[in-house]
């Protein structure tokens, strides 16, 4: 069993209602563990950016409290913010400054003394070193995204927020970025990321939080989430096509026939005490249904995520009607 790490961010009863009356966040309670990569997933408008904005000091909360490293984000904002690096979703960069100047500016803004060696390391890690004297407006979108990451890392934060860090970034750059993120995590930095590329969350995250309509609907360790909610499928490729599934076969309700009767798929629960795979195979043998090949498939995080969000939306619609 994995030891429970102390939380570095603690969110209690946080809510946000905008002046327009729109409630972006309903009572949020969440703890982010020190040193983890936490992926916050949710559809557009679910409240991800609002939540990050409040923690980082960009938005005011309506109710509730947030502490970062034990420091209240309002009463002890200097200590709290000094721990945080933020990479915003929008490509909001200066235009006329050089890469070096804008990253150095960020470090100064956070009250850190000059450290050209650190800035150099960040720029090299992010493949920005040869662009250090370029004006930001001359850079591509992907490069600007890297500049934002470099700025966020300039003051050596202990917590890094990455709000859609790979949006509009090509595959090669993405790989580099994730390597930087892995290195940061290895150095003890806590990372909170939102992404629309769920396979990235699946690949990177230790824990997953799903937010929908301003509510955290699930927080789970990724492996547990996938095994708990993940359905597994056994796909059997048959030597001779079946016209229909034999009625006396085990697991009839969980079997589907496809590919002109040549593909029999059995869906089972990985958490069940007995999956039924052995009995199914025994029945196939009894019925003299011969196999050409077989494979198993597991639900992706994306499928799990879509299922969760649509369940939540159905529940919300049901509650209203």
């Amino acid at each position: 069993m994995r030891p429970i790490m102390p939380s570095i961010i603690s969110i209690k009863n946080l809510s946000k209602t905008y002046a327009s009356g729109f409630t972006a966040l309903k009572t949020i309670n969440l703890d982010i563990e020190r040193g983890e990569i936490f992926a916050l997933l949710g559809p557009n408008g679910a409240g991800k950016t609002t939540l990050i904005g409040i923690i980082c000091g960009i938005l005011n909360a309506s109710t509730g409290t947030v502490t970062v490293g034990g420091h209240d984000i309002i009463n002890d904002y200097r200590a709290a913010r000094a721990l945080i690096g933020l990479v915003p979703q929008e490509l909001t960069t200066d235009a006329f400054e050089s890469v070096w100047d804008t990253v150095s500016f960020s470090r100064g803004l956070f009250g850190k003394p000059k450290n050209p060696a650190h800035i150099e390391k960040i720029l090299k890690d992010l493949s920005l070193w040869d662009k250090k004297d370029n004006k930001i407006r001359t850079l591509s979108g992907g490069m600007k995204r890297r500049v934002l990451i470099a700025k966020a890392l300039s003051h050596e934060p202990k917590v890094l927020f990455l709000d859609e860090p790979t949006a509009g970034v090509d595959v090669e750059l993405r790989k580099d970025m994730w390597q930087v993120v892995r290195d940061l995590r290895a150095s003890g930095v806590t990372i909170i990321l939102t992404t629309h590329y769920i396979e990235e969350a699946e690949d990177m995250a230790d824990r997953i939080g799903v937010i929908s309509k301003g509510e955290i609907i699930l927080v789970e360790r990724k492996a547990e989430l996938m095994s708990k909610l993940g359905k597994k499928q056994l796909v059997l490729h048959l030597q001779k096509p079946l016209e229909q599934i034999p009625p006396d076969i085990f697991g009839l309700a969980n079997l589907t026939l496809a590919d002109g009767g040549k593909e029999l798929t059995f869906t089972y629960d990985t958490q069940g005490e007995r999956t039924g795979v052995t009995r199914l195979l025994a029945d196939l043998n009894r019925l003299d249904i011969r196999l050409r090949d077989l494979e198993t498939r597991q639900s992706s995080l994306e499928e799990i995520f879509i299922g969760l969000v649509s369940d939540n939306e159905r529940a919300a619609t049901g509650a209203q009607s």
Binding site: C56, Y77, A80, R81, I84, T92, T93, D94, L109, G111
Partner: peptide, 14 residues
Amino acid sequence: FTGTIYELLSAPVS
């Protein structure tokens, strides 16, 4: 206007 104000607001400055 450009949105870079986020950095000022999220920095430990009064």
